[in-house]
Amino acid sequence: MNTLIVVDQPPYGSWAGREALDMVFSLAAFDQPSALLFVGPGVNWLRSNQAPSGINQKSVEKNLSAAPMFGVEAILADRSACERFGLTEATLVAGVTLTDSVPDTLDGYRHVAFAG
């Protein structure tokens, strides 16, 4: 039963994305095939060199980098949203697969869910 968790909220301004990460980690813990898809302002999760110590939060960039180790199968991002927010190959974190068609990506998963 493959599940896609979608993140469309930017990091740090709310906890919604962190709660999406907990969902995908728990699927991985129970060996359920799972992936993350970042769309809209959510793609800002994927910018490298985040340094949130000044706002006393933990780095979502570092949290997210544990995903492959736990068995999360893919980190996907909407290419057009990345372009809109000025994310290029040079500024994207490693291991992200860009998609040109969000509808096609959604079709590939039995379950599609947001954290909130």
């Binding site: 039963m1 969902m23 728990s26 813990a29 129970f30």
Partner: peptide
């Protein structure tokens, strides 16, 4: 969250 996974 295991409860949610089991529900799925």
């Amino acid at each position: 969250l295991g409860e949610w996974v089991e529900g799925n």
